[in-house]
Design a protein around this nucleic acid. Structure first.
Lengths: 245, 245
DNA sequence: TTGCGTCATTGATCCGGATCAAGTGTCAGT
DNA sequence: ACTGACACTTGATCCGGATCAATGACGCAA
């Protein structure tokens, strides 16, 4: 016989499966905020929830771009490869981030889970069918795309002109700002990705990333804690990152 | 007394001033294609044509983002600066390109003319007021933004992971593809920007750009002609650029 | 014509970060 | 407790591109 709290949990799971959007933790963060409660079921109708283990691939560069994704849990990396295997990570996405925004026929990048992750998958064709009914969605998509563009442009400055130390400092501040924006503590940040991925994001090698962490620690600008936690000296790092303030 | 062809020319100039959109050479290339002929005057009402000499600034990083621009003639560079003067060029824009696409309150970059240039200036607030009436414009803006994002992501791969030779080859192919897309010959391309700007775009110094041109010429992959014309060995350059083909 | 300013090329040297090569935890499975 | 497997750190050396420094090639104004 089930205990009351077990029944409650079971009901929550069933609701999550049948009405994913109404119970979505990431809803207020994402494009879904453009749809009012009473119409949510129309959105829910074209959504599938997917679960990913680390190293699972969500999207493969060159494949037909059939879906948009909304990360609701975990960390994924978005990356491009050169034919000889060199990798550039375009970005990391966390809960609330929309992935797959493109008007093109095929994905221009691959997406892979770094941690266990969960995502909402939207059928692209059908979502675009809703755009005339909910013009707010189109606006929201443009807004998201525009923000990503601004972030990409900042990253071009980083990759083209910053030193290794400036890159790592900028990266740590990015994580801090993102955490704050999501309502989490800005200061001790958690690195959910390894040194290799940080390197592939910053255009550096794993050794340079490691050495730079060591130097920053020696200068008391960061402190490495347990579980990949990093305490930051925010003001000093900001000086160093090449930010304008 | 004016000759008939002079009258004709004068009339064209007057029409250009009073009905800029209807006579815009770049119209079919830009966001303006979302508006049908009979409604063009509504678009024209919020447009000003501006002329720029080389080194004139169109937009300054940090200023309130009051306008969108549509380049109709010439070349401009879009760039970001670090406090110590290091510069990263985010992109070059030519006739038909839309500049200033952003949802943010302030420009995140500066824009400066490299050649004599002309542009249509749209009042941002008023253009966004038209979005409900012409939802196609919103879609067009998203589409443009999305394309720019894809280009920025390619550039991140270039800046983070490509060698100097691969960067220069990629850059020349970009110019070639852009020319083809605009219906111009794909092969002899014209460099409307100097070596310094190419360097600031590719994350290299002026000397490295120059040396790389010299090497490519020695390998018969390019030939430098008069007036900054460059003849390209498209297939060989494509091999070298790290493109997937 | 000369002189000057600007830009591109070329050479010599330097250095930040890459590459190559060991270590050093740390944790899961036995 | 032992053993891989894996991720990270640290050290030694190398090299691609940066920096410093002339030199050439135009166009333009006097």
């Amino acid at each position: 016989m089930l205990q009351p709290e077990q029944k409650q949990a079971a009901r929550a799971i069933v609701e999550r499966l049948t009405e994913p959007c109404a119970h979505c933790d990431a809803r207020h963060l994402s494009v879904c905020q453009a749809v009012e409660d009473p119409y949510l079921e129309q959105l829910a109708a074209l959504v599938t929830t997917i679960e990913l283990a680390p190293h699972d691939t969500m999207v493969t560069e060159g494949d037909p771009a059939g879906h948009y994704f909304n990360i609701t849990y975990g960390t994924v990396k978005i990356y491009k490869l050169l034919p000889d295997g060199r990798q550039q990570i375009i970005g990391f996405s966390f809960a609330g981030d929309f992935v797959g925004l493109s008007v093109r026929e095929n994905y221009a990048y691959s997406v892979e889970a770094l941690t266990p992750a969960r995502a909402c998958r939207f059928d692209r064709k059908r979502l675009e069918g809703l755009l005339t009914k909910f013009p707010k969605i189109e606006h929201q998509l443009r807004s998201q795309t525009s923000d990503e563009l601004a972030i990409a442009q900042d990253q071009m400055l980083l990759l083209g002109r910053k030193t290794a130390k400036e890159r790592v400092a900028s990266f740590l501040l990015q994580l801090s700002h993102r955490a704050k924006r999501l309502g989490q503590p800005a200061n001790p940040v958690v690195l959910t990705m390894g040194r290799a991925d940080i390197g592939d994001y910053l255009g550096l090698t794993i050794e340079t990333v490691s050495r730079t962490f060591t130097k920053l620690r020696a200068e008391k600008l960061i402190a490495l804690g347990a579980n990949n936690t990093v305490h930051l000296e925010l003001n000093a790092l900001s000086e160093l990152s090449g930010a304008w303030n």
